[in-house]
């Protein structure tokens, strides 16, 4: 089984993040960039499947040059190789266009199974998995908290607002995972050294048969009109609990008409 894991480099969600004032895109140059956290769970899940069933694990990233750091980090966890789609024309791409590029690269790889994080911490858009599956005409099992593979048949469990549901499909398919699915491993020293020598193939849009005008700002299906910093919340009244902290809390609730 060939498993392709989608990995996105994102600005660290624990640090200050900004949009650029010149072109309204995510400011990646001044941010500290990391692997989208949810993608580490996707990598872990792929490695566990490989350990149980054999096969190959390939990392796939669409992103600027500097995403190479995140790709090497992903490889240090254990995957066999990586594909990096990098092209200046991609800058400014919307989700619809990005899904086109990812779908083309997945198709070229001939993946049996695609695993990705349920969402990225920068966009939090959550639409890519179904967009890709729609383009490839394969099943999408999204939001998995548990994945079982038996030959070509896949079963996931996913959380719903009411409880959970169990969903099945056959390969080829795409599975997106939440952070409840496993505990990702830390790269070992050996893994970090090995990652430096693992094959990393770089592809341009041309290699995927996609024209520059279909992506980036030219091909964007939505645009940012303007953006601004939200004024930070102001701290209000802070009291010491003393002996009657609970009563004071309720007094406040009453003054705001919550009780």
């Amino acid at each position: 089984m060939k498993i392709v894991v989608l990995v996105k480099q994102v600005p660290d969600s624990g640090a200050d993040r900004n949009l650029r004032s010149d072109d309204n895109t995510v400011d990646r140059a001044s941010a500290s960039n990391v692997i989208n956290e949810m993608d580490e769970y996707a990598i872990e899940e792929a490695l566990r499947l490989q350990e149980a069933h054999g096969g190959e694990v390939v990392i796939l990233t669409v992103g600027p040059d500097r995403a190479t750091e995140s790709i090497r980090k992903a490889l240090s966890m254990g995957p066999d190789s990586a594909v990096h789609v990098v092209d200046d024309a991609l800058h400014g791409s919307c989700a619809v266009a990005t899904s086109k590029v990812l779908a083309a690269a997945i198709a070229q790889q001939g993946a049996d199974l695609v695993i990705c994080g349920a969402e990225s911490t920068d966009g939090r858009v959550q639409v890519l998995p179904h967009m890709i599956a729609e383009r490839l005409g394969i099943a999408a099992l999204t939001g998995a908290r548990k994945l079982t593979v038996d030959g070509t048949s896949l079963t996931i469990e996913r959380q719903t607002d009411e409880g959970y549901e169990v969903v099945t499909a056959s390969t080829p398919a795409l599975v997106s995972v939440w952070d409840t699915i496993n505990d990702p491993r830390y790269p070992s020293f050996k893994g970090i050294m090995a990652a430096k020598k693992k094959p990393l193939q770089t592809l341009s849009l041309g290699d995927l048969g996609i024209a520059a005008g279909e992506v980036g700002f030219d091909g964007a299906t939505s645009t940012v009109v303007e953006h601004s910093k939200r004024p930070p919340r102001q701290a209000g009244n802070k009291i010491d609990a003393g002996d009657d902290g609970g009563s004071k809390l309720v007094e406040y609730l009453a003054s705001e008409k919550f009780v």
Partner: peptide
């Protein structure tokens, strides 16, 4: 932290 206004183009 950030407010964005955008539209489908």
């Amino acid at each position: 932290s950030t407010i964005v206004k955008s539209k489908v183009s």
